[in-house]
Design a protein around this nucleic acid. Structure first.
Length: 638
DNA sequence: GTAGGGTTAG
């Protein structure tokens, strides 16, 4: 067994390192099992017998043998083998190559171990390459091991200064990167400020790490300040905005980038498509799709996955399917994305069929695949099939259900009306239920008008996610539909006491590249008057077809006439009317809503799709509703 | 020898 105690005294340059891995817990390099002198000699004997030397080992393994040699004698032995094998090459070059291999291995700590040995025994005078590889190892170790990687990195930084290597810009960049990767942004920034020379990479490193920490403001300041930008600078910022939930900013930058004549690469395109997906920006998404096609990017699987997802999120399930079918190669991610997409669009049967197809071609499902399948079952009310999938995922595929899967199960059970079973399921879960799980029960309680279950759910939700207004609204709806107005008022007090604000609902619709947003009761829009007039006409037609306004959807305790007025100024109705006025007959109308579509609007939209012979696609915060010929793809099951 | 990318239930 190898431990530090059998190693030479800790070198001056590096702080003490954690002990080498035990043989029972090998790192990704199998050679870590050669951890005792006899094993090393055995290995050598085998190699000699086979007419090979240590040099015929893959280099990373040879390096690991050296790094982990328990005693100086073993190290010397390994070293002599390597030197003989390297046949005339300078020893410094051999070690640098070894360090590089270790830094890029699954156990970069071994690079620090080897370096520490080399320094103690003064086997080699470090040069800029040596430093660069050791710094890389520190970066690879990352912030989780900062107690090891940061002191080691600082030591190398000191060494660089001592050796007079500070004019090496490349090396300096690596040091900045090291600090950033170890989570020492202050030091990274300080060094960045002090650097006599910087290039675009220096800037990009610092920006990337602010982006990674979610500090888009600082990243943007630096981005605006930098003297020259390359594709990666742009891409980092665009991707950062997408990651931090600012797709509009992402798209703005993407357009700026195009204007500046910088050619987006495959990564840029992925980020841009993700932004389009978030925003439901179909037109831009299609433009990016064409660009990607022109550039030959469509052979990139990951890019096509994002493209598929973009069409799914923009409500174009057929186009998504088209991209999916055309893909030269499909990974589990491609299949999962498509299955989830079909489920989201209410095409549960197709989702299950696609799963059969996926199994047939031999692609192994992952946890996300099962989320899509459970979602599909929940949507179609396929209780037994859903339970079978849930069992199957661990039984047949060894996948451990995560909290998300439990959330789906609670959704499946409670939507199917099995509220008591759902509650018992929650109590028996091996992981602590989160707000999503209780939220699913609350949703089921709403569908099945079960006040008691709703109250049970909110009890937990108030603790787990007290500021989320959505839950209070649903509870309030449950009370309202039961005619319990005192309780509705009580929920409103509850919200006031907790300082919960109702998120204002909005709906948007794109026309000729311009996004029009509507809020309830909107009178600011240029066409407000025309919209209201057109709605009144529609309302007459609706009523003649048997539409009765569902005033239960209005939470406020007011008289029925007022309620109807409020109801008819819902943002999705305004957006739809705007679309009907401005878009040529026969074209589908696509609407996005930040909240869930209300039940009255849902009923009205079904009829309107029949009356106007229009397809209406609404993306709400959970799923898609595709209204056509008087029906909705969700089958009123949402 | 330095900087980036995908699918997820309510």
């Amino acid at each position: 067994m190898l431990s530090l105690s059998s190693s030479p005294a800790p070198p001056r340059l590096l702080p003490p390192l954690p002990p080498s891995p035990e043989p029972s817990r090998p790192s990704s390099l199998s050679a870590t099992t050669f951890s005792s002198p006899s094993q090393l000699k055995q290995l050598h004997a085998q190699l000699v017998k086979a007419g090979r030397s240590l040099s015929t080992l893959p280099l990373p393994q040879a390096a690991v043998v050296c790094a982990l040699s328990p005693s100086s004698a073993d190290f010397d032995y390994a070293r002599s083998l390597l030197r003989r094998a390297a046949d005339g090459k300078q020893e410094g070059v051999i070690w640098n190559t070894c360090l590089n291999a270790l830094a890029g291995s699954g156990a970069p700590i071994n690079a620090l171990r080897l370096f520490s040995r080399l320094r103690t025994a003064s086997y080699v005078l470090p040069d800029s390459f040596t430093c660069s590889f050791v710094l890389k190892a520190c970066s690879e170790l990352g912030p989780a091991a900062a107690d090891v990687s940061l002191p080691a990195g600082r030591a190398v930084h000191g060494l660089v200064e001592k050796l007079g290597l500070h004019s090496d810009l490349y090396l300096h960049n690596t040091i900045v990167l090291m600090y950033a990767c170890c989570g020492a942004m202050v030091e990274a920034r300080l060094l960045f400020e002090k650097m006599p020379r910087r290039d675009v990479v220096t800037w990009n490193i610092v920006i990337t790490h602010f982006v990674k920490r979610g500090d888009m403001e600082t990243a943007r300041e630096l981005f605006d300040e930098m003297p020259e930008r390359n594709v990666r600078s742009w891409t980092t910022m665009i991707g950062g905005y997408v990651q931090s939930g600012k797709p509009k900013e992402a798209i703005r930058l993407y357009c700026d980038m195009e204007e500046m004549g910088v050619e987006p690469n495959e990564v840029t395109v992925v980020a841009a498509l993700a932004a389009c997906a978030d925003l439901g920006a179909l037109e831009l998404g299609e433009r990016v799709h064409e660009y990607a096609n022109r550039c030959g990017f469509l052979k990139n699987v990951r890019l096509c996955n994002t493209l598929t997802d973009m069409y799914i999120k923009c409500g174009c399930i057929e186009l998504a399917r088209g991209v999916f079918e055309e893909m030269e190669e499909k990974t589990v991610v491609s299949w999962s994305a498509m299955i989830c997409g079909l489920a989201m669009h209410g095409q549960g049967e197709e989702a299950l069929q696609l799963f059969s197809e996926m199994k047939r071609v031999g692609v192994r499902p992952n946890g996300v695949t099962f989320l899509g399948l459970l979602h599909a079952c929940s949507h179609m009310g396929l209780l037994e099939e859903g339970c079978e999938f849930f069992t199957s995922m661990s039984r047949d595929y060894g996948l451990v259900p995560e909290i998300e899967h439990y959330g789906c199960m609670v959704d499946l059970l409670s939507r199917a009306g099995r509220l008591q079973d759902a509650l018992e399921f929650i109590h028996k879960m091996p992981v602590a239920p989160n707000s999503v799980v209780w939220g699913a029960l609350l949703g089921g309680a709403h569908v099945h008008k079960n006040v008691k279950m709703g109250e049970e759910a909110i009890k937990h939700l108030r603790r787990l996610d007290p500021l989320n207004d959505g839950y209070y609204i649903v509870l309030s709806n449950i009370y309202a539909e039961a005619g319990r107005w005192e309780d509705v008022a009580r929920v409103r007090c509850m919200m006031r006491d907790e300082g919960v604000k109702k998120t204002p609902g909005w709906s948007s619709i794109a026309l000729d590249g311009v996004v029009h947003e509507f809020v309830a009761g909107d009178s600011d829009h240029l066409q407000a008057e025309v919209i209201y007039r057109r709605w009144d006409e529609l309302l007459m037609q609706l009523k003649s077809k048997g539409y009765v306004p569902d005033t239960c959807a209005v939470l406020l305790d007011m008289d029925e006439d007022r309620k109807e007025q409020v109801l008819h100024r819902h943002s999705e109705k305004l957006a739809l009317t705007f679309g009907l006025i401005n878009m040529p007959p026969g074209t589908p109308i696509r609407i996005m809503k930040n909240l869930r579509v209300c039940s009255d609007c849902h009923a009205a939209f079904k009829l309107i799709s029949a009356i106007t012979e229009r397809q209406i696609v609404v993306r709400d915060r959970n799923r898609f509703h595709c209204f056509k010929d008087g029906l909705c793809s969700c089958r009123d099951y949402w």
